[in-house]
Design a protein around this nucleic acid. Structure first.
Length: 682
RNA sequence: GGCGAGGUAGCUCAGCUGGUUAGAGCGCAUGAUUCAUAAUCAUGAGGUCGCCGGAUCAUGCCCGGCUCUCGCUACCA
């Protein structure tokens, strides 16, 4: 069987932290190491995702080129992975020449096949910098919480998702100018065209996918797929390879997964057999935020292109938290791999172990330093390290550090050895079904078995009465140690290597696991050393203090910002003529009825007596008024605004209010005195 | 708001086509042991299986409602 394993491309605007490792790279690394050890044909590809708006923003902020940013982080990321033994066959990057060509060809192919639809839409444009603005390039006041500095796609203060058009006082982050709406043409991948196929492929043929993955796909498919834009107005990325597309690049989510293909091309000229030969199984390891792209969008792209395999499975993990809070690169709330290695040199496997044992496989999980310490001290040191050490030290002491012979095995001896085979099956089954936490537990059970075996057979006692029996027991114990070296390799590669050198063996294959003749009688052992060492309370307290400092710094930084929130009058808008004003038909109206719009948070549906007619007007003020509050009151109505449907209800005008809907001061704009409906306002 | 996933012992998690006293590891307690990094081995104490209601002879597991966490995704003229 041939396998192509991909790991989510890390975004090159920061380093790698424990969340990345636990969610994606440790599982994928375990999986590939296991397959390699079995002798399967497998490659593991990854690389940096180097396009997209956040990188251009960071570059602008630092006054350097985007390329400089991605060069910096690509180096850091690559280095972290190498040091932690994440054994990619290639770690590439999406700013490479191969990738530019591959992604460009891919787009071109779809374009020529007529797989895209073109559409013109209105987007914010910066008139001073004369360029279109990506959502992230627009900042303004959050329409929900009122905080300044919200981005066009999200407010980091209250966390709500936004669209640039909703921002109050929008400003271009490039020039500071007020953006204007302008038409722009983009290419869309009509996902709806592939919906029937995806339904069948995922919902019928891949019921074995993890519940979170399957559930999310089902949710998307049931909701109906829509065309998705695959281009952007931006100058950092892969140019859209079509005539008349100046200033447009491939959307980063279109370009990134193609990065898996270009990485494979960079690795081997035989890349096509990994992508196109139906006997190859492709597995995407990702985090839960990427599910839709890997299960819906990318497969649709591959299928639209034709000739490519679709993934066999997409084992997405949930998220890892850190000491009770969400990990955040921008807030600095993370444990970075490079920093970890400074504080815990040569202890990569401890972190690999702790993260795998508490991996967020079925739900979000919390990484705590106490848990990390406990995993090390009472599992790695006490169970695993201690067992190996016991077997080796006893052999050195009683048998001159050579493997003693095992002439006659007792029933207990064979049962113990047979049990390793049972553990092996359990490990295999769990790895193959992506249950790495459980698989690791079963590996540890082999060490538990070893400890129990030694305690029950007491070689330190029999040496006085029956040295030959002691030899047999230690022989068996050493076979278990050898098996541990094999079983641990996918999970704890550094430790496995250490054991191999301690028992004087170059390498084993997975198939050797559980054999009772891995170490022949008389085989000389190497120098015994401790596999793991205890982590003291002080070390853990130092790490916790480090995090507390980050939190304190973040809090301080947010204080002055909060003061600037003080209400600033919005700048005056552009001068208009009297004629412009005269176009507005404003009248006094009276609220006859008012109710909440179903399935909506903020919308109220008003029935207004305008003097002319009774009309329905929808307004987003449910957060400010209860429906009853305004009934019978005068309101100011803009009569001649083009009707528009909101949540399925047609609004035939607009009601005027004063204030910031998210703020405390917000009021209905009505005449001083009760007036008849229909009274003109001028 | 809609949708998805999750809410099981102090901690991390199993469990499920509904079927006798709900399991494991760590932690904790007691005992055994001393080869080993005060490690190990045995035994035990810990649970109204998020809350409320329903269907069933029987439910952690099915149905309805609610609630909390995380993710995806909207309306705001």
């Amino acid at each position: 069987m041939r396998y192509l394993v991909t790991s989510a491309l890390p975004y090159a605007n920061g380093g790698v932290h424990i969340g990345h490792l636990a969610g994606v790279y440790i599982p994928s690394d375990i999986y590939t190491r296991y397959l390699r050890l079995r002798g399967e044909e497998v490659i593991h590809v990854c690389g940096s995702d180097e396009h997209g708006v956040p990188i251009t923003l960071k570059a602008k902020k630092e006054g350097v080129s985007p390329q400089a940013i991605v060069d910096r982080y690509n180096t850091i990321i690559k280095d972290s992975f190498e040091k932690f033994g994440i054994a990619f066959d290639i770690y590439s990057r999406t700013s490479s020449a191969t990738h530019a060509q591959t992604a460009s060809d891919f787009f071109r192919h779809l374009y020529e096949k007529g797989e895209f639809v073109e559409q013109v839409s209105e987007q914010y444009f910066d008139p001073e910098a004369s360029q279109f603005l990506a959502d992230r390039y627009i900042t303004g006041d959050c329409p929900k919480c009122g905080a300044p500095g919200a981005y066009g796609d999200q407010c980091e203060k209250c966390g709500s998702t936004l669209s640039p058009l909703e921002l109050k006082n929008p400003k271009s982050m490039i020039s500071g100018a007020v953006p204007v709406l302008k038409e722009t043409r983009h290419w869309y991948l009509p996902l709806d065209k592939h919906e029937a196929f995806l339904r069948q492929w995922i919902l019928e043929e891949h019921k074995e996918w993890k519940p979170n993955v399957y559930g999310q796909c089902k949710s998307w498919l049931d909701g109906g797929l829509m065309p998705r834009a695959v281009s952007r107005d931006l100058d950092w990325g892969i140019p859209v390879p079509v005539e008349g597309a100046q200033g447009k690049v491939l959307y980063v989510w279109f370009d990134a997964p193609i990065g898996y293909i270009s990485a494979t091309k960079d690795l081997t000229p035989e890349w096509e057999k990994y992508w196109k030969d139906p006997s190859t199984k492709m597995i995407h390891f990702i985090g839960k935020d990427n599910i839709v792209f890997h299960c819906i969008v990318f497969p649709a792209m591959l299928r639209a292109h034709g000739g490519y395999n679709l993934p066999e499975n997409v084992p997405a993990n949930e998220f890892l938290n850190l000491e009770g809070d969400k990990i955040s690169t921008s807030r600095g709330w993370a444990v970075w791999l490079d920093e970890y290695l400074v504080d815990f040199p040569n202890q990569q496997d401890v972190l690999r172990y702790a993260l795998c044992a508490s991996a967020p496989e079925t739900k979000d999980n919390d990484f705590t330093w106490r848990d990390f310490q406990q995993r090390n001290n009472s599992e790695l040191v006490a169970i695993f390290g201690n067992f190996v050490n016991r077997a080796l030290v006893l052999t050195a002491k009683y048998f001159d550090n050579k493997v003693p012979s095992a002439s006659v095995l007792s029933r207990a001896d064979s049962d113990t050895l047979a049990q390793i085979g049972v553990q092996r099956k359990a490990v295999e089954h769990n790895i193959e079904t992506y249950h790495f936490r459980e698989a690791l537990f079963e590996v540890m059970n082999i060490a538990r078995l070893g400890n129990k075996y030694l305690t029950e057979n007491e070689p330190w006692k029999t040496i006085k009465t029956d040295p030959e029996r002691t030899g047999v027991v230690l022989n068996v114990a050493l076979q278990i140690v050898a098996s541990m070296a094999i079983a641990a390799e996918p999970f704890l590669p550094f430790t496995a290597d250490k054991i191999l050198s301690m028992i004087g063996v170059k390498s084993f294959a997975w198939g050797d696991l559980g054999r009772n003749d891995l170490l022949a009688p008389g085989h000389p052992l190497g120098q015994a050393e401790l596999l793991f060492s205890k982590i003291e309370d002080e070390q853990i307290e130092a790490q916790i203090a480090k995090l507390q400092a980050i939190k304190a710094a973040a809090l301080e930084a947010s204080q002055p910002a909060a003061q600037i929130v003080a209400p600033l009058a919005a700048p005056q808008k552009e001068i208009i003529t009297y004629d412009d004003f005269a176009k507005l038909d404003l009248r006094v109206g009276k609220v006859l009825r008012c109710e909440k719009v179903e399935k909506s948070d903020k919308l109220l549906k008003f029935t207004i007596d305008t003097g002319l007619d009774e009309r329905t007007i929808v307004s987003g003020v449910a957060g400010n008024f209860t429906p009853e509050e305004l009934v019978g009151r005068n309101v100011t109505v803009l009569m001649n605004l083009a009707p528009r449907k909101l949540r399925g209800v047609e609004s035939q005008g607009m009601l005027l209010f004063a204030g910031d809907p998210a703020g405390e001061e917000f009021t209905n704009l009505a005449p001083d005195k009760e007036l008849k409906a229909g009274t003109a306002i001028s």
